[in-house]
Design a protein around this nucleic acid. Sequence first.
DNA 1: TATCTATTCAAGGTATTTATTGAATAGATA
DNA 2: TATCTATTCAATAAATACCTTGAATAGATA
Lengths: 221, 221
Amino acid sequence: MEAREFKNFAYGHFTKISKALSSPRRFELLDYLAQGPKTVERLAKETHMSVANTSQHLQALREARLVASSKVKNHHYYELADSEVAELLQLTKRLAERQFPDMGEIRTMETTADGAIPVMSSAEALEEVASGRAVLIDVRAEDEYNSRHLKDALSIPLVQLEEKLGQLPPGKKIIAYCRGAYCLYASDAVRFLRERGFEAYRLDEGPADSAISREIEEEKR
Amino acid sequence: MEAREFKNFAYGHFTKISKALSSPRRFELLDYLAQGPKTVERLAKETHMSVANTSQHLQALREARLVASSKVKNHHYYELADSEVAELLQLTKRLAERQFPDMGEIRTMETTADGAIPVMSSAEALEEVASGRAVLIDVRAEDEYNSRHLKDALSIPLVQLEEKLGQLPPGKKIIAYCRGAYCLYASDAVRFLRERGFEAYRLDEGPADSAISREIEEEKR
DNA sequence: TATCTATTCAAGGTATTTATTGAATAGATA
DNA sequence: TATCTATTCAATAAATACCTTGAATAGATA
């Protein structure tokens, strides 16, 4: 194998990975898949894409070996092919936040905008929950909670928030989280809770995110 | 800001990073830049690209904030914008090696091919060097050695190997390294040395690579 | 000032990527 | 078997990325 040929082979393979990650739609799909396995249909609904388009992107991701699929009845379940894929997503996000100033701001932007959503850092949340002054709620869908969630978090999917208000201890702070800083469910939950008198905050991360959330300790089941 | 708009903003920024990484040429450029700052001209020569094309790719990398440039006289020096960029490169490579079987093989392929190049793992090299049974030589260009190299390594650029043969202790094993597993200088060096009776090996990594090489300890100056 | 060198810019044709649409497949249910 | 549903395939048009070429800039040297 000649030198040039060797390099093309090597760099061609490396860039299969980044090429697959280079479409916003596909990045979003992976972000959802970091929450746990999902069907094509479900992904299409969550990302507001057509099923055909979703499927096509998933093919691309599978060819780059970023996702794997399995078949149960006539549903195809897709999931991340390797835990390092989640790391890659995280590292890319962190780099973008560091290098693009307006990107970094967005994490706290909701705080300053009109109809402010107070954001709590993971470090602070850890203390508040440990001392019993706050409870943590996971407002993602139930299966996402089941596939992985933060320790001591209650599962209260956003759509069920109203009916499950009784489960929330009055007087304590409520810290809501969803997929991460770029998912809006937790903000919706905080807004809803504040309108009803709760001292609610949104967490700045999700369970698939960085090192700090490891300290809040995840449970996998 | 609407939900859709917010997502487009966020994912659009994330994918600027991966889009920049998604061209084999640009990935190669970054790989060279991980060895230290370089001018456009030098990069063009090393990658065998036209200067205009190199410059254009560097623009793309700069827009994605993966590289930064500074001006000295009428030379523009480019370098990685953040240490996390090097991590991103590494993680991508590691993932490709794990997920593509033929990719993983290539690291040791030279061992099995005709005119075999024996490869030594970093772990083994660490022992051999520590016990004094082997010496480590860095066959990259001198400025790359100066910008960062493995501990106790001698700088012997490939082009000077013949004239510096006298610096090599006879009887000891010689372990050569260059940019990493996908750079061919070290292999050329090993072939050359074996023809002259040395027991030579190539290291499976380079100074910008993974955790194991940290144990061989890097020096930065 | 004129000239040289390193770098960037601009224009082009070709190739690749994208989302949409409608048809095809294949397993489950009746 | 016929029918339904979930998923993939195939074809298209629009948009984008790629490398080449030749010109333009701007700093250094004479």
